[in-house]
Computed example of a mutant assay.
Amino acid sequence: MIKVLFFARLREELGIDGLQWPWQAGMTLAELLSQLQGQGEPWASCLAQPNLLTAVNQAIVDSQELLADGDEVAFFPPVTGG
C-alpha cells in the first residue's frame, strides 16, 4: 500500500487529508496521479494543477519517480509568499 497525503487547498477541495492506495510493481508517481485523477471530479481537476508539487518520503521528486510498497506520497499546491 502507498500512503497518499493531501495538503492545504488540495485537502480542502478533496475533503480528505489522506488515503491508502494499492501499490503495483513498477508504478511511477505519474501513474499514481493518473489513477487518482481517474476517479472523476473533483479529483481530476484538483490534481491537474500545472504547478502541483509532489514528494515521496518527504523529498520533492518528479513524476517519473518509481514508487515502492510502503512509500508516503504527498501532493500540495505551490507555496507562495511575500
Rank of each mutant, 00 (worst) to 15 (best):
W21I: 09
V73K: 02
G82C: 11
L33V: 09
D62H: 13
W21P: 04
G81R: 11
W43P: 06
M27N: 01
D17I: 02
L10H: 12
F75M: 04
G26V: 06
L53M: 15
E65H: 15
W43H: 09
L33I: 07
Q35N: 13
S45M: 08
W21L: 08
L33F: 00
I16W: 03
R11N: 02
E65V: 04
L32R: 04
L19A: 05
A68Y: 10
E13W: 11
L5W: 09
L52S: 02
W21H: 14
L52F: 10
G70N: 09
A44R: 15
K3D: 13
L14M: 08
R11I: 07
S63C: 12
E12Y: 01
P22L: 02
L66Y: 04
E31V: 06
G40Y: 10
L52H: 04
G38Y: 09
N51I: 06
L36I: 02
A25K: 12
P22S: 12
F7P: 08
Q24R: 14
E13I: 12
A8C: 13
W21G: 05
D17E: 15
L29G: 09
T80L: 13
L14K: 00
I60A: 13
I60W: 11
I60N: 07
P78T: 09
L19M: 15
L53F: 07
Q49Y: 05
A55V: 05
W23T: 00
Q39L: 07
N57W: 04
L10P: 03
F6P: 07
L14R: 02
T28W: 00
Q49V: 01
A44H: 14
L14V: 08
V4K: 12
L47A: 06
G40E: 13
W21D: 03
A30K: 05
I2Y: 12
E72H: 03
F6N: 04
P78D: 12
A74W: 06
Q20M: 13
R9T: 13
Q58I: 04
D69K: 11
A8G: 10
L66P: 05
W23N: 05
Q64M: 08
L10Q: 05
Q37R: 15
L32A: 06
L67C: 02
L52T: 04
P78H: 09
A25C: 07
